[in-house]
Amino acid sequence: MSETGYKPKPDNATGGLSSAGSQPAFPMRGSLFRKNLVTTLLLAPAALWLVVFLVLPFIAIAIFSVGERAPEGGYQAALTFAQYANLPARATAFWNTMVLAPIGALACLLVAYPVAYYLALRAPQRWRLILLAMIVIPFWTSLLMRTYAWMYILGGRGIPALLAYVGIEDLRLINTPGAVLLGIVYGYLPLMILPIYVSLERLDRRLLEASADLGATPLSTFLGVTLRLSLPGVMTGFSLVMILLLGEYLIPTLLGGGKVFFIGNALVDLFLQSRNWPFGSAIAITLVLVSVVVLIVANRISTRLSGARRVDLI
């Protein structure tokens, strides 16, 4: 085979990465530093924002979590891990949440993927922006209001009232698990669609042609190329929705009738009803840790399945 007169090429001479693959071409140290200084200055406001609104509250919550509930409620300084030891008291809530969050995110994904796929790969170019806007714009109004709208649509004077006209009496849609799932899918759909849309939009269409060219049927192209390469978007959307669902309390309360108790509900009750801030804080800290774990796992999966790409949340 090698009698073709082919001369092995010195790859480095042509800028090849074969030997430099592990040490990407960094700029010189000096310029790197200068670049960092500028970057630092540019990022300072954002960093400050982060510190004031994320880090400090987190520290405050962490301090609360090792405190005690004052007799009249609230917080009283102490150094105890009793609150953490008490976490099993909300085990059901944790369990409900850990079951709901992935199921909700999955349901959301199942609806979002075809929509994102249509938008990115099938919709006529000139309609794309309009369709995208139609998906995003409702998101600008508060979730509370949109969920409230669903309360009326599913409530006795909404769909059941219409069904009563055709003789289906006393049908109850509101305050059912289905209503909660619907609310979750509806509420978080844009958050799931957008990252998937972005990753599909970024997808090099020629890869799809290359796949077809190599004999892959549309289905195996979808599975082997489209889906695989959109996984970072899928994982981003999934972890985003999942993490938000970990703290969700509004939708189960409004569309589920408050009969299903999630960690979010436990938090609301502890802060606003029984005013047990230390216990609430311990749960909040735990929730943050769980979220971090979810992100790390999602990132691992995404990295493994699609090469070097990462979940865009990190």
Binding site: A89, R90, T92, A93, N96, G258, K259, F261, N265, A266, D269, Q273, S274, N276
Partner: peptide
């Protein structure tokens, strides 16, 4: 009572 309520709601 707060804990009782939490158990009731999470049941």
């Amino acid at each position: 009572r707060a804990e009782l309520m939490a158990r009731f709601k999470s049941a």
